[in-house]
C-alpha cells in the first residue's frame, strides 16, 4: 500500500492510497481534478501530466523517449514532469507528492 499526495491547480491537497495499477487510474478513480486520463493510459493524450516533487524524482523514475516526446509539447512542462499513466504504483512510491500540471 502506498500513500500518494496529489496537489491540484487550485492548491488542494488530496491523499489517496493505492496498491497496483497506474497513478493515472488511481487519480481518476479518486476524481483528482486535472487528471482526465482520456486515452486510458496509452501515452497518447497527456491529460495525466504531473510534476513530481524535486527530491522525489528518483522514486518516480525517468520517462521513456516516447513519454518525453509527448511532454515536450505539453503546457507547463518542467524537468519534473511525468505522465502519471506511465508510473506503476508500488510500495516504493509511498509518500510521493505530485502536483497536477494543468
Amino acid at each position: 500500500m502506498a500513500k500518494i499526495t496529489f496537489i491540484t491547480q487550485d492548491n488542494i491537497s488530496v491523499v489517496v492510497e493505492g496498491q497496483s495499477g497506474s497513478l493515472m487510474a488511481l487519480a481518476v478513480e479518486n476524481g483528482i481534478k486535472g487528471i482526465d486520463g482520456d486515452c486510458g493510459g496509452v501515452c497518447s493524450c497527456a491529460t495525466c501530466h504531473v510534476h513530481v516533487q524535486a527530491d522525489q524524482m528518483q522514486l518516480a523514475g525517468e520517462a521513456s523517449e516516447i513519454e518525453k516526446d509527448m511532454l515536450e509539447l505539453d503546457d507547463n512542462v518542467s524537468e519534473f514532469s511525468r505522465l502519471c499513466c506511465q508510473i506503476e504504483i508500488s510500495d516504493a512510491l509511498d509518500g510521493i507528492v505530485l502536483t497536477v500540471a494543468n
Binding site: D38, V42, S44, C45, L73
Partner: peptide
Amino acid sequence: RKMNPHVGFGFSHHNCLGAT
C-alpha cells in the same frame, strides 16, 4: 498495445472535442 502515442484524434490545441 501498451505504448500507443497515436494522433488519431489529433494533437495539441485542436485535439478532437468529440473524442469522449
